[in-house]
Amino acid sequence: MLITFLRRLGWFVLLVLVQALILNNISFFGYATPVLYVYLILAFDANMSRYSLLLWGFALGLAVDIFSNTPGVNAAATTLLAFMRPSLLRLFTPRDSAEDFSPGILSMGTSPFIRYLTFCLLFHQTALVLLLTFSLVQPHVIVLRIVSSVLLTGLCILGIEQIRK
């Protein structure tokens, strides 16, 4: 129990630092920024309680917020993702999979995992970009930001999955 918690905490610190010190400085063509820290929420065990998911999500978003001077923005988006995750996971899990598993290419299969990943990232990025810009004045810029960041983040996460395999 304690070991699981410490392992999660280790991932938490690592992902927040990588996000704050490296990834936040990346901006491809002025639009795409990889948002890798959501990987923590996506990879939590499937039968984790909704309460702890929400609390982890909020804490993770808040930590990233404090680093990037956007109080509340990442926290709100990540809490939303943590709230949606159980339903999205159920939607894309193959019927015959085990009761408890950690979502990934190995446990879910490549194409269900990619579908799960895409939908989760879309929800998260849409909330994030809308809260950051807080206006609908330039809809094409907003859509471009969302799509390009989802693609870039998705590629990063698939890369990590390949390495962990």
């Binding site: 978003g61 404090i66 923005v73 926290a75 809490t79």
Partner: peptide, 28 residues
């Protein structure tokens, strides 16, 4: 309820930061 509570907390932070000078603790 927990979800709503956390979202409300996030939005309070979001709007507070733009209007009050006392929020240094939540910045870099």
């Amino acid at each position: 309820f927990l979800f709503l509570l956390l979202e409300i907390a996030s939005f309070l932070l979001l709007f507070r930061f733009n209007h009050y000078q006392g929020s240094v603790g939540f910045t870099s």
